[in-house]
């Protein structure tokens, strides 16, 4: 039982409710987000998983309010921050939250940082512009932040430019920049994908430490199930712009409640399965212009049964303990009774 006295019952720090996003393209409307719901509380890490194109980044960008509209459009949904709908807010009010209450770090720090400004300048920019801090104070704070993310000789490197740092150090610079305003929510969109394996682990450790020390809520976007086991509290699995399974990390590893999650887990390389060929999910991700009827996963699902899977959209089934699964046979799957 979680004890949360300061928080009204049922209210989360951040809650995405039934969000829809479409993109207007030359070939028609791409239905990218089709009813995503997830929530985040202070001090916890939610991992958002799913193959490329499933809509993880677009959801995050909708939360940040940095989608280009047009071509993007949000026909319906809510994004509640402390109970207030970000989508219904005037832009000025929303901008005050963006980057200070809710921050985001991106995948490729080299292109995500501005090449012509020094890292100290970029880290201190928000402080100077938004809090009116003096240039000298802001730079001093930038050096402290660089220390916090464990960049060696931070003070000496404050005038260096992004291209003068290694990939891992650059990602740390971006983390320092995101932390400048003490955010309550940190969204990390594949923060380690562009890095070497050894550096990946260091960055993940750093993020986990910072999340704990600063008591932030963290949304960790990744398509690597392997890295989330150690850092995440809960996992939300996305497919075709929907959360198809949501559960506690340990529960999901023990027994997935959705065929797609099962496919993802069996495709993780394991040390003890040397020589054995990795299971992969057959077929291609769905065409967002023409989504399949019924369950969006049915063309690829090994357990698909006609006509229910092809005709009826499975609702998010509540399996108890905060666990949900959008599969008609979630209960059977959980009991290990589903066979191909």
């Amino acid at each position: 039982m979680q004890v949360e006295t300061a928080r009204p019952v049922g209210r989360h720090l951040l809650e995405v409710r039934d969000l829809f996003v479409e993109f207007h393209t030359r070939d028609g409307e791409a239905k990218v987000i089709n009813g995503v719901s997830y929530h985040l509380d202070p001090g916890e890490t939610l991992a958002v998983l799913g193959e490329s194109g499933s809509g993880k980044s677009v959801t995050a960008q909708a939360i940040m309010g940095i989608l280009d509209m047009p071509p993007a459009r949000i026909p319906s949904g809510q994004i509640l921050y402390n109970g207030e709908d970000l989508l219904a807010m005037p832009e000025e009010k929303r901008r005050a939250i963006r980057g200070s209450e809710i921050s985001m770090i991106f995948q490729d720090a080299l292109s995500a940082l501005n090449p012509v400004f020094s890292v100290g300048w970029q880290i201190s920019e928000t402080l100077r512009v938004r809090t009116g801090m003096s240039k000298a104070d802001a730079l001093k704070r930038a050096a402290e932040l660089m220390d916090l993310v464990k960049i060696p000789a931070a003070k000496a490197r404050i005038k260096d430019y992004p291209h003068q740092f290694s990939g891992g150090m650059r990602q740390r610079v971006m983390i320092a920049m995101a932390l400048a305003m003490d955010p309550k929510v940190l969204i990390a969109d594949e923060p380690t994908t562009a890095l070497d394996v050894t550096v990946q682990a260091q960055i993940m450790d750093l993020l986990a430490d910072l999340r704990r020390d600063l008591n932030m809520g963290m949304i960790l976007i990744t398509h690597d199930l392997g890295v989330v086991a150690d850092v995440a509290d809960r996992i939300a699995v996305m497919y075709a712009g929907r959360i198809i399974e949501h559960a506690d990390v340990h529960a999901i590893y023990k027994q997935p409640a959705h065929p797609y999650t099962e496919g993802l887990i069996s495709s993780i390389p394991r040390l003890n399965s040397k020589g054995q060929e990795l299971a992969t999910i057959k077929g291609l991700p769905p065409n967002l212009m023409r989504l399949p009827s019924g369950c969006k996963y049915h063309p690829r699902c090994p357990y698909m049964q006609q006509p229910i899977c092809t005709d009826v959209v499975p609702p998010a089934l509540d399996l108890g303990g905060g666990r949900t699964s959008a599969c008609h046979f979630a209960k059977e799957m959980l009991d290990g009774q589903l066979h191909r």
């Binding site: 960008q61 940040m64 940095i66 901008r95 005050a96 939250i97 963006r98 980057g99 200070s100 921050s103 985001m104 991106f106 490729d108 292109s111 995500a112 940082l113 501005n114 090449p115 012509v116 400004f117 920019e125 928000t126 512009v129 938004r130 971006m174 920049m177 305003m181």
Partner: peptide, 26 residues
């Protein structure tokens, strides 16, 4: 269209500043 513009926007900077400082300088 560059990535750093998206970053600048995610810092909560005004549109004017994103364009007038970040984009212009490059």
């Amino acid at each position: 269209r560059s990535d750093y513009v998206r970053t600048a926007r995610s810092k909560g900077l005004s549109k004017r500043r994103v364009v007038g400082v970040h984009v212009l300088r490059n």
